[in-house]
Design a protein around this nucleic acid. Structure first.
Length: 816
RNA sequence: GCCGGGGUGGCGGAACUGGUAGACGCGCCGGAUUCAAAAUCCGGUUUCCGAAAGGAAGUGAGGGUUCGAUUCCCUCCUCCGGCACCA
């Protein structure tokens, strides 16, 4: 049957086969080698965009490839269904967030099916389902009992006009996105999870994660930011409470010429109460959003508080400043300033005319001028009283010892990592299961009363959470004492849902426990794929949650993701696709025009997965053209009737060459798909093989047999990427089995052997010729043959050969 | 500002462990087919000099190590991601 390639017919038929045969639904089979292949689940924003198509296709290729290696593959899909866009849509369209979200899920699931992804839909999860979020509410109450959650004040962006808390994203140039009012920092009580209790474990385990990219591990390591130092207390003149600071450089203590606190620090607020200038400055510091990037790029400003701090070793008084770059959320909210040996302190001192003292000298004895340039290297102490002449470690120990012996401080470890604030003042999230009682304080909702179900039928105004206006939700009895009490109306950060969904896919229907024994079979995830933008937050929170679940006895697994692949963004005209920029390409239109296989192929071919992918309409057409060529190659071949078997006797040069290409391709593509994850080069190699078949015109039995072998091999090897067309062509090649159940082609090592190899000849590192030598020639034979090349002779003639380097199988470099 | 990643023909990219820079594809140029166009097929395509053989230059910029550097080291430029309430 010779027909033109019709993607839609081919694709719907293949999809029907997979669906009828339930090809991708898997149970737990202890006798089989499991492979859990997972993509970071999407937010149901409406329709799939190209970024989704890219990550979903990458993961699908890996899943299908592993299945062909004989693995028992599970690839689930679900929805990160809570989040702000549903609330924004609710305000705009007057649709309840739940309704909007479920409609989006329905549409996006249909699009995924049309793209032919190998999902086990029986495991589908939507995080806004109470059957899902009840378990994170339950885990939160368990953490509460263990002291792993606590409540404290923390800073949010406050929109003074809309009277609402804004996300960082909703602050544009320091102003609220709807009201355009200047945003303020404001402190409100919020719930925190003690991720810092796991800081050391999260850090140390990074050393034993070979399946993660080094870049991600480095980012997490720096984010955790473990540093060993000393906590020092400074007495404050006319104050009872001392000021505590953390430093990694106690060796520079004699260089302290001032101290600084954050605007929210109690000492700054105390000074503000009596000094209007300070009060104005503190207010000014708060007129900004809470993002760290904002604070770090702001002009460094400060003001003396009129308070003096007493240097613990010299007894001298140094001034205390309030500064906008000191973060209340990091350390103690106070720092000691050593302008001679800290870059930021130096610049601040220069600007405000504060003294700069040199207390460290270069170890090599060279002279420096501390007024001209800051000196931040470790060296030898000078101008440091009894502690002069010590190297960094000796000075560190001597000064740390003094503080510990005198009860004025202690050696300690500090982390940049902060505890995870999980409270959100939003409606569309999982309710935090807490009840506030005047007598009993904050009481966790008892297990029997879980889940705390989020009311889904709501009026949405946009002024704060509708939960606050729902007495039937808020007014409850205290579970402890039975008196009237109030329910928490804050909801969880949506990162809470995404921190454990991967484990729940193993047992999505479990009603008796968060996880059951099926999770022991499937966890950890063997291959996790998602955007680099999640390198820190999502992945670190997930590693933390997995450990909390472990310590709750739910699993033995500590690390949730064995191998991690971070894929790049999809760009058009050099920019991320977005509605604002008007550079969005809709996958739906392309599927209608070219079919799902073309879209999948282009995505895999255009760039390696980690890199950003530049969209190209022409490139998509090229992919479509290739599929037509591939289709036609099979039609042409099969038009000659059923293919004969490979002859047992030796092949002539032509068929032998094609057969070598076939088996080189099997080795190359298997390596690209299985180890390197360079899908682009796997596609290129497939194209080369099909080009070789197209050029090959030996219609003898032996010729047709090697062509048939090549076409079957390429059909198997392309099937993870373009499964539909391969499904159809596999049948056309005369196979009665379904391609989805086939194994990867077997490599015949003997077919790779060649008699002659081409060697490149260089003279002084420049390419001067090529010679063909026997594959088993020794180095001397290769070198002498290289010297005989006429063009090589031109450059060697009359010169002395100083050295000859032979790289077997590759090149000869003659140095004259 | 801090942390991480990138920069190679007209374009997307390849070169995996220091060993032929530009595989594969797009675009473009020429040809075939066609009444014509689309589609398809064949050939060419880093730049400069040259009819060709061949030569010279060339992987963001500058320096270094090496017989040999896109690859390793140093300095700088630039773009992208993250910075804790976008997901």
């Amino acid at each position: 049957m010779s027909t033109a390639y019709n993607p839609e017919t081919v694709e719907l038929e293949a999809q029907k086969h997979w669906s009828d045969a339930r090809s991708f639904e898997v149970g737990e089979d202890a006798g089989k080698d499991k492979f859990y292949c997972l993509t970071m689940f999407p937010y149901p924003s409406g329709k799939l965009h190209m970024g989704h198509v890219r990550v979903l296709t990458i993961s699908d290729v890996i899943a299908r490839f592993q299945r062909m290696q004989g693995k028992h593959v599970m690839q689930p899909m679900g929805w990160d269904a809570f989040g702000m866009p549903a609330e924004n849509a609710a305000i705009k369209n007057k649709v309840p967030p739940a309704k909007w979200t479920y409609a989006n899920i329905k549409e996006m699931r249909a699009q995924m099916d049309r793209l032919g992804y190998a999902y086990d839909w029986s495991r589908e999860i939507a995080t806004c389902d109470p059957k899902y979020y009840r378990w994170e509410q339950w885990l939160f109450t368990r953490m509460f009992e263990k002291g792993l959650v606590y409540r404290k004040n923390s800073i949010v962006n406050w929109d003074p006009v809309d009277q609402t808390v804004l996300a960082n994203e909703q602050v544009i140039d320091g102003r609220g996105w709807r009201s355009d009012a200047l945003v303020e920092r404001r402190e409100i009580p919020q719930w925190f999870m003690k991720i810092t209790a796991y800081a050391d474990e999260l850090l140390e385990e990074l050393e034993r994660m070979p399946g993660w990219p080094d870049s991600v591990k480095t980012m997490q390591k720096n984010w955790i930011g473990r540093s060993e130092g000393v906590e020092l207390t400074f007495d404050v003149a006319d104050e009872d409470e001392p000021l505590t600071v953390f430093t990694t450089r106690p060796d520079t203590l004699y260089g302290v010429t001032y101290m600084a606190v954050a605007a929210e620090h109690p000492l700054a607020e105390k000074a503000a109460a009596t000094n209007p200038d300070v009060a104005a400055f503190v207010e000014e510091c708060k007129q900004t959003d809470a993002a760290e990037a904002t604070l770090e790029t702001m002009e460094k400003k400060g003001m003396a508080l009129g308070i003096n701090v007493i240097h613990p070793l010299t007894g001298e008084e140094v001034p205390l400043w309030v500064a906008n770059f000191v973060l209340m959320s990091y350390g103690t909210g106070a720092v000691m300033a050593v302008p001679g040996h800290d870059e930021r302190d130096w610049e601040f001192a220069k600007k405000h005319g504060l003294p700069i003292k040199q207390v460290i000298a270069p170890a090599d004895g060279s002279e420096i001028d501390i007024d001209e340039a800051v000196y931040i290297d470790k060296g030898v102490t000078v101008n440091s009283g009894d502690y002069d002449g010590l190297d960094y470690q000796s000075a560190f120990d001597a000064i740390a010892d003094w503080f510990e012996e005198n009860g004025r401080g202690r050696r300690t470890v500090n982390y940049r990592l902060r505890d995870w604030g999980v409270s959100r003042q939003r409606y569309w999230g999982a309710p935090i299961p807490i009840i506030y009682c005047d007598d009993c304080d904050a009481v966790p909702v008892p297990e029997d009363d879980l889940p705390v179900v989020l009311p889904e039928d709501v009026e949405f105004t946009g002024h704060g959470s509708p939960l606050n206006d729902m007495p039937e939700f808020v007014n409850v009895k205290c579970p402890n004492c039975g008196k009237d009490a109030r329910r928490e109306t804050d909801t969880f950060d949506t990162f809470v849902e995404s921190s454990w969904y991967f484990a729940r896919y193993a047992c999505p229907d479990s009603e008796s426990a968060m996880l059951d024994e099926r999770a022991a079979y499937w966890m950890p995830v063997d291959q996790y794929t998602g955007g680099v933008e999640h390198a820190i937050l999502h992945l670190l929170y997930s590693r933390f949650f997995q450990r909390v679940m472990r310590d709750e006895g739910l699993t033995d697994v500590s690390e949730p993701f064995t191998n991690l692949l971070t894929q790049g963004m999809v760009l058009k005209d050099g920019a991320k696709m977005s509605k604002n920029k008007g550079n969005v390409v809709d996958p739906q239109e392309l599927i209608a025009k070219y079919g799902a296989d073309t879209v999948r192929l282009f995505m895999m071919f255009a760039a390696p997965p980690e890199q950003a992918l530049e969209w190209s309409d022409d490139g998509v057409q090229g992919s479509f053209r290739f599929l037509k060529r591939y289709w036609n190659a099979v039609q042409d071949h099969m038009a000659g009737g059923p293919a004969p078997d490979l002859p047992a006797s030796a092949l002539d040069a032509g068929p032998k060459e094609l057969r070598r290409k076939t088996h080189q391709s099997i080795a190359k593509i298997g390596d690209d798909l299985g180890r390197r994850y360079t899908f682009n080069t796997a596609v290129a190699a497939s194209m080369e093989l099909i080009n070789a078949v197209t050029r090959f015109d030996d219609k003898s039995d032996a010729g047709r047999a090697v062509v048939h072998e090549a076409l079957e091999a390429v059909t198997l090897m392309l099937s993870p990427i373009v499964p539909h067309i391969c499904h159809a062509l596999w049948a056309q090649l005369g196979n009665e089995t379904a391609l989805v159940d086939e194994r990867w082609p077997v490599l015949d090592e003997s077919a790779l052997e060649a008699d002659l190899v081409e060697i490149v000849v260089q003279v002084n590192g420049k390419l001067r010729g090529r010679v063909s030598v026997a594959a088993d020639a020794d180095n001397d034979a290769i070198a002498s043959q290289a010297l005989q090349d006429s063009n090589v002779q031109r450059f060697v003639e009359g010169k002395e050969v100083r050295k000859t380097i032979v790289v077997p199988g590759r090149l000869v470099n003659i140095v004259v």
